[in-house]
Each structure stands twice: as C-alpha cells, then as structure tokens.
Design a protein around this nucleic acid. Structure first.
Length: 859
RNA sequence: GCGGGCGUGGUGGAACCGGUAGACACGCGAGAUUUAGGUUCUCGUGCCGCAAGGCGUGGGGGUUCAAGUCCCUCCGCCCGCACCA
C-alpha cells in the first residue's frame, strides 16, 4: 500500500500545470469564454483565511468551468493604494511603496502553494505607474465628458494635527492620534458625476438577475428614488436674498400637520444668520463638532436653535411656523431644509419633545383615536388610515399613497409646489489629501485656471522622495513636484496635490485585466472578447459602494469609448461570500492582539502569553486593523494545500459568515488519505476495459452511487453549494469503502467510480485528484480533462420510500412503485399496523397522498 | 438613527416548491486492531423517559391535513452608511 504524499505531489503537479500553461488565458473566438474574478486583495501584509476562502471558491468555479469546455480567464492583482501604507510608513519610517511591494511579494509567496488556477501573467498592482497612468487617462476623458467637476464639500478636520481624517480615523468624535474633537470643515474637492446615471443605475438593477436579491435591494435603497413635493417657504424677517426657503418632503400628505421648520447647520441661511449673531455662530460651530459619517450625524443627540424667524406655509398664508436650525437635518439630502411634522416622523417627534414644540396628528390608525405620544405613527404608504388634519375632508379613510397623490395634485394645481423625483444618491467625492494614491492629473494656473494635464505627460508619477513622518499631505510640501509649468501657457503653476479615492482604483481593474499591458486603459478587442465578468465573487461588505462605483465606471468608460456598450453592467453574476470572523483581543492599554498572542486563561477567557489580562471582543470580520487574523500556513505546512482547500470549503455554506476554528482540519486530511488507501487496496479493471455484460447487486449499487454523485456534485457546484458537494463526495467514498470484491463487474465499477471520484474532486483538491488520475494510469493531465456526465439510466430507482403520517406525526413507512396510483398508495398506507393503531374507531376522516412524497391520514 | 442579513443537536451544518428535522462532518461514548500512543476499523450519539411515548429549528402568537420553511410580533448577533479596503 502506498501512502499519498502531499509534499511530493503538490509541487510536482503545480509545475506540470505551469509548464502546460493551462491557466494562461488567450483569446480564442472558437471557444466560449468564462471570466471568473474574485475581489482582489489589499496587500495588508499576510494572506488570511478569509482570502483563502474567497480564492478557493473562485478556483473551484474556474476549474469546473475549464472542465466544462470554457476558455477561462482567472486573473489576480493587488488593490495597492491606501491609508495603511501611510500609517506603516509613519510608524516605522519606511516608504509606503516599499512597504506595499514587499507585502505583495510575501502574499504572492503565500498564495503560490494553494494551487490556484490563476493567470499570473496578467498580474498588476494599482500602485504600478503603468496602471495608474491609464487611470489618469480615464480621469481626463471623464473630465472632458463632463463627468468630473469640483465643488466644496465637508471633511473631518483634526484641529491639532491640522489634517483631514478618514471616517475610520475618527473615534467617538475625536481624532485617533491627537484625541482632539474633530470638526467638519469645507474643502474644494473633485467629484465624479455618478448622479448623471441615477435613474439608469436604479432601473438596470432589475436586469441583474444573477445577483443576490439582498444586494439588489441594498443598491436600490442606496440610490433611494423618492417622489415627493418641492415647495418654498416664505421666510419672514429673512436677510436679503433669503426670502424663500426651498424645501422637499417625501410625505406631502402631512403638509397640514407641521409645527416647525428647520435648516441644516451648514445651510446657507444658517451661515448667513451666523454672520450677525454670535449665538448662532456658536451653535453652528457646536453642530460642526464630530465626524461626518451619516451614522455619527444621525445618532448624535438632537440639537436645535430657534432663529426667531418664522416661515409661512405655501398653502395657507395664515399658518406660520418657527424656523429652527437643527443638527439632524442633512445638508446633503434634499434641499437641506425640512418641514417638521412630529406626529409622523420619529426624528421630528424627538426634536419636538425636546424643545416643547406642539404635535399635531394628521392621521390615525383605523378604529383608534389615540394621539401620538412618544412614538411617531409612521404607516406604510399602502396602509389605509383615517385622515383628520389634511387638505381633504376630516375623517376620510384612505391609503397614504392616495392622500399623497391628491395633495400633490392640489399643490400643483394651485401653484403651491410641484411634484419632484429625487434620489438619495450623491455625487462621488474622489479627492483625498493623501500621498499614497493616484495623483489627480490637473494643474492649477493663475492665468488659465484649472487645466487638465496633457495625456503625453502621463503618468503623473508620485515622487519617491517624500517626508511621511509629519501629518498632512507630503505632496503639498514637495516644491519640485508641486510647482510645474502650466500645460497651456507655460507659466508658473501648481499641480493638484490631491490624490484619488482608492475606490477609483478598484472600479475598473476588472476591465484592465482583459488587457493589462495595453498602452490605453483597455484594448477594444480584448475587452469585447472577455467582458463581462461572468462570475464575480467577494465579500458582502462591498454590496453597495464598490459595486455601485464599478457599475458607474463601466458606464462612464463606455461613454468615453473605453468599453463596449455591452459592458455597462460589468458583473454578469455576483456571489457574496460570508465573512470569516474571529474574536478580537485587546490588552490593558487597548492595543489589539493577534490570536497567536493570547492563550486561554484558567477559568475562561484569554490572557497574553505573559499572563496579562486581555479584553475579549465580539467575533467580527478578520481584518488587519483589529489583528484578529489567522494565516493558512499552519494547515498547509502540516497537511498540504489540498487539505486546507477541502477543509475550508466543507461544512459552512459559502454565503454564510463563519466563526473560524481549525478543529476538523485533521479530518479533511484523514479523508484524502482514506480515499487513497481504499484506492490502493482496490482491484480495478484495467484502463479502457470494456463494459461487462452483467453487474452484481453491489457493483450496480456502486455505479448508481457514483453517477448520482456526478449529478449532485455538478448541481452543487453550479449552485455555489460547495459544502454540499463535499458531503456528496464523502458519501461516494463511503460507497467505495463498502464495495466487496468478487462480484461480477465489480472491478469495472470500482475503476469507473474512482475515475469519477478523481474528476469530481479535482476542483476542490486539484493536486490530489491529479495524483489519483495519474495512478489510475492516465498520461494526460486531469486538469485539462472534460467534466463527467452522469448516465441517466443509473440515476433513478423504480421504487420509492414514503412516510405515512397520522395527524402530522410519522407512524409508518411504505415502499411503493414509482408508478403507483394515489389509490394504491392510500390502500397500502391504511393497511399498515402503525397507522391503524393510531386511527381509533372512526377510521380516517381524510387521506392526503402526495405521490413520491408523503401520505398524511387525518383521524 | 437608517438600510440589509442571519438565528436548526455539544459543534459546523443538511432539509428541492409547505411534505420523514438533524444528510455529511467534527466532537463524544463503547468495542476491535496495535507492545503503547497515534493511525485504522465497527457500533452508538437531538432532548426527557426503563419503556410506551412525549418534546424539539432564538421567544411568543397565527395560517394549514402538514410549518425550520408562509404571516405577525419580540429578542439576540453580524454587515453597510458615501474618507477602512
């Protein structure tokens, strides 16, 4: 008996695949193409189990599709710009680029033994000047097409470090390094006009039928189409130029129930009032404290300031409302001003209660006269309610939608306001005041204004000689890089020192993979052949931003001639895998600790290796910043890559989050060894032996088990149910182990079953399967072999086992012919002792027969 | 706060379209093989109960001949919220 030796087998087969160039994707118009892509990693330093899970899933799909005869493109690269490199540079005094490229080298080394079917010839990092040069070219084309513009917008400002902070760098409203209370500050920034595609990005979601419903729903909600009423308040006593206040409401049916109006703290009217009123200025400053994230804004305690001004209702000049400045009003949504109807909006109600404003019920639940107390009454638009305070007759019962429609019509007819369609989606701010990103290729000239860089000057490369040790953007402090001649007039000018959001880098890399060395962003022939991505795989945490930005980019690239019009939805099918989670650990000082830096404490919990106390946090997504990462090396080192691949694909369904535990990795290894041992002890018919005339019952059963495995594993891989596919393969191996030699046809059945086992296992454990294939006597590579097809004659039984229930409880089981009629089944069921016993004297009242499924007798 | 998701034995999970809850695996228990340990093999393993039987899919309620699956409600956890990637 030979043992399976992964240490010898795995490198041997990887070398064979390499030499045969099996994973090198080449355009072949004769073959159907299949582009499978996993979201590329940020090179944080080490590969962790979450990465492995992601790439093995993609690899199973890629290898399966290859076996199905597709010309597969399966590339890999690095999402390499970003903050962590700058943080590492600041902490350790190394250059962000050196840190990044050395991480890439380490991580590539870690991936190599996994046996992934990747076309490494297409590899790139987004921080390669060859890549970001083309990104700069895209930026210039978008600029020319009117898809890029500049305007003021708000950032987190650290007043101590004098620098812009990312939301992640704001902790409880304070800068993570300085500890200073963060302020919101306005800067002029570059924007991509994603809202030019709002309607299209929304309506096209309907066509994404191979995306998960939850992602489509989240994208729809994010884009946030609403139909509402736009109107103007007249502001009484307003400063000049602010006499009318535009407002938008999504609930026009509540127009007769407002008790206040409010504007955002950074609304132009609030800013104007602050000029002459120090109290308002101070209040506005108070509102500006804290981070800019929507979460921070909406969970902040509600603050208001009564301006003393009033506004006049558009439909009823006798109705005036106090005008407040409120921190819960967002300048970014609608017009930055709201009509406050406390009875039917929880935020308005909280605000009204806090400041003693009245509450007017506009409508009440049917059959109730209860007034709103602490909880706003917010029915669905399709709910019928009784309107008591609105433009129609009091007491009328109708749905909110009807009431809104009628109110809108009334306002339009009288010129009090107009119906308006509005999106929640905002334009995409891409300016970052940071070094380690793609430079924005424009120049600011005093004479010519903001001018685009010439394309022949691309890339505008990042300077290597920068000082990262100080907070702030080193590009701003780099005179020889910053101070350049104007591309138009040649006079003295300054380069834009903002770099692009790293989301830009990942919004078109999938297109670049189709022609990674092209001297234009894409190559028309390659893009036409390979796009779209047939299967995209990645974490659900990217369900909104990354995927939406990519959908925008594909449209913008099509508009500027960089992608065919057929590629505006770049991801044909999307699979969102669950996250790999692990507990988090912090020492007494709050420093994050890695799982290998802690050990179990006596009496539960964890301590450091020195025994110091450790705070255990919740189990969350593995991430470098929280250090709760586990590397795959231990398992690979001990058992080989195939065991690691098999283990990580078994048990948990791919879309589900998993709590990482290495318990069970030995079992995966044991399984491979068992298959090998059973194989090496089995007496097989020779390669190419003819089908025998007869099979014994055991041989026939083994053939059935093997062909059913073909059917089921195929369906499970197609459906991303890898855990189930693996369970089916365990069952097949049990059937193999149970086979008894000596029966007619058994040697043939064994060979057939082992050949099918090798082929079905190959996407999961490619080295092992290749070794088995070779030991079965094949000269060719299994990886290049075709996927098996099940013999339909071996799939079906002519009998079926049916449970018989009495009053919903199982009391017996009957074996019936597949072709049995309902009457025959019923008669058999009622003849069962176990059924009669539970029937009582009156006999059955009713018998439900679902052929092939179940019989339920109602006593 | 808002949007989305998840919850099944000691554990990971299975259950197609409302039709036998717990496939497959881990763990555990018993036995066999082995000088011993490991490996390997056999059997058992949702809970209560000697048994008959009863109870069981986060809690509560509902629809149905039949509910893990559909509806209502509550609880817990996770993801996202536009400058983390």
């Amino acid at each position: 008996m030979t043992r399976y030796d992964h240490r010898a087998a795995e490198p041997k087969w990887r070398k064979a695949w390499d030499e045969a160039e099996l994973f090198r994707a080449r355009i072949d118009p004769e073959k159907p193409k299949y582009y499978v892509l996993e979201m590329f990693p940020y090179p944080s330093g080490r590969i962790h189990i979450g990465h492995v899970r992601n790439y093995v899933m993609g690899d199973v799909v890629a290898r399966y599709k290859m076996a199905r005869g597709f010309n597969v493109l399966h590339p890999m690269g690095w999402d390499a710009f970003g903050m962590p490199a700058e943080n590492a540079a600041m902490e350790r005094g190394i250059h962000p680029g050196d840190w990044t490229y050395s991480n890439i080298a380490v991580m590539k080394e870690q991936l190599a033994p996994m046996g992934l079917s990747l076309d490494w010839s297409r590899e790139f990092a987004t921080c390669d000047p060859e890549y970001y040069a083309q990104q700069q070219a895209l930026f210039l084309d978008f600029l020319e097409a009117g898809l890029v513009y500049r305007r003021k917008s708000v950032v987190n400002w650290d007043p101590v470090d004098m620098t812009v902070l990312a939301n992640e760098q704001v902790e409880n409203g304070r800068g993570w390094r300085s500890g200073a209370v963060v302020e919101r500050r306005e800067l002029v920034q570059w924007f991509f006009r994603i809202t030019a595609f709002s309607d299209e990005l929304l309506s096209a979601i309907d066509g994404l039928d191979k995306w998960p419903d939850k992602v489509r729903l989240m994208q729809r909600n994010w884009i946030g189409l609403s139909k509402g009423l736009a109107f103007d308040f007249k502001v009484n006593g307003a400063p000049e130029g602010f006499e009318t206040l535009p407002v938008y409401t999504t609930r026009p049916d509540t127009m007769m129930g407002p008790t206040f109006a409010a504007v955002a703290a950074d609304h132009p009217l609030a800013l104007k009032l602050a000029e002459d009123n120090p109290e308002i200025a101070e209040f506005a400053a108070e509102c500006r404290r804290g981070g800019t994230s929507e979460e921070a804004l909406q969970t902040a305690p509600k603050l208001g300031y009564d301006t003393g001004l009033t506004v006049t209702h558009p439909a009823d000049p006798s109705m005036t409302l106090p005008l407040w400045i409120a921190n819960f009003v967002l300048m970014d949504y609608g017009t930055g001003a709201v009509i406050g109807c406390p009875a039917h909006d929880q935020r308005d109600l909280d605000f009204a209660r806090k400041y003693g404003l009245p509450v007017i019920d506009v409508f009440k639940p049917l059959g109730s006269d209860e007034a709103v107390a602490d909880e706003a009454f917010v029915p669905a638009k399709t709910d019928k309610v009784r309107y008591v305070q609105w433009h129609g007759p009091s007491g009328e019962e109708l749905t909110c939608q009807e009431a809104m429609d009628r109110t809108l019509a009334l306002y339009e007819a009288n010129g009090w306001g107009e119906a308006r369609t509005q999106y929640r989606l905002r334009d995409w701010g891409v300016s970052r005041q940071r070094y380690w990103g793609c430079p924005i290729p424009v120049v600011h000239c005093e004479k010519c204004g903001t001018v685009p860089e010439k394309k022949e000057n691309l890339p505008i490369a990042l300077p290597k000689d920068v000082d990262i040790s100080k907070p702030g953007n080193p590009l701003d402090r780099h005179p020889t890089w910053r101070d350049v001649p104007c591309p138009v007039c040649g006079g003295a000018a300054k380069r834009e020192t903002d770099t692009m959001d790293t989301f830009v880098d990942s919004s078109w890399y999938f297109a670049r993979f189709t022609a990674p060395r092209a001297t234009t962003p894409t190559d028309p022939e390659a893009a036409a052949y390979w796009m779209n991505v047939d299967q995209y795989i990645g974490g659900v945490e990217h369900a909104i931003l990354h995927l939406l930005y990519s959908r925008f980019f594909a449209r913008a690239m099509a508009k500027t001639g960089h992608l065919p019009d057929t590629a505006i939805e770049p991801f044909e099918a999307l699979f969102t895998q669950g996250m790999v989670c692990h507990e988090t650990y912090q020492d007494a000082a709050g420093k994050w600790l890695a799982p290998e830096e802690v050990k179990p404490a006596e009496g539960g919990g964890w301590v450091t290796l020195d025994g110091a106390p450790v705070t255990t946090g919740p189990s969350i997504k593995m991430s470098k910043s929280k250090k709760n990462v586990v590397a795959p090396e231990d398992i690979i080192e001990k058992f080989g890559a195939d065991t690691a691949r098999w283990f990580i694909m078994s048990d948990s369904p791919p879309e589900r989050d998993v709590e990482w535990t290495a318990a069970g990795a030995e079992a995966a290894n044991r399984f491979l060894n068992r298959v090998w041992r059973v194989f090496s002890e089995a007496a097989l018919a020779p390669l190419g032996a003819p089908v025998p005339a007869a099979f014994g019952p055991g041989a026939q059963a083994l053939r059935q088990a093997a062909h059913r495995a073909v059917r089921d594993v195929t369906a499970d891989i197609e459906g991303f149910a890898f855990n189930k596919a693996i369970a089916r393969l365990y069952e097949l191996s049990a059937a193999l182990g149970a086979a008894k030699a000596g029966e007619p046809g058994m040697d043939f059945a064994l060979r057939e079953a082992f050949e099918l086992t090798a082929r079905l296992m190959s996407p999961f454990v490619p080295h092992f399967a290749e070794e088995l294939w070779s030991a079965l006597g094949h000269d060719s590579l299994l990886t290049a072999a075709a996927w098996p097809v099940a013999d339909p004659a071996l799939l079906e039984d002519d009998q079926v086992l049916m449970p018989v229930q009495v009053n919903g409880k199982k009391r017996a089981e009957i074996r019936v012919a597949k072709t049995a009629s309902k009457d025959e089944i019923e008669a058999m069921a009622l003849a069962e002792d176990g059924v009669r016993k539970h029937l009582g004297e009156n006999g059955p009242r009713k018998v439900i027969v679902v052929p092939g499924r179940i019989v339920n007798v109602v006593a």
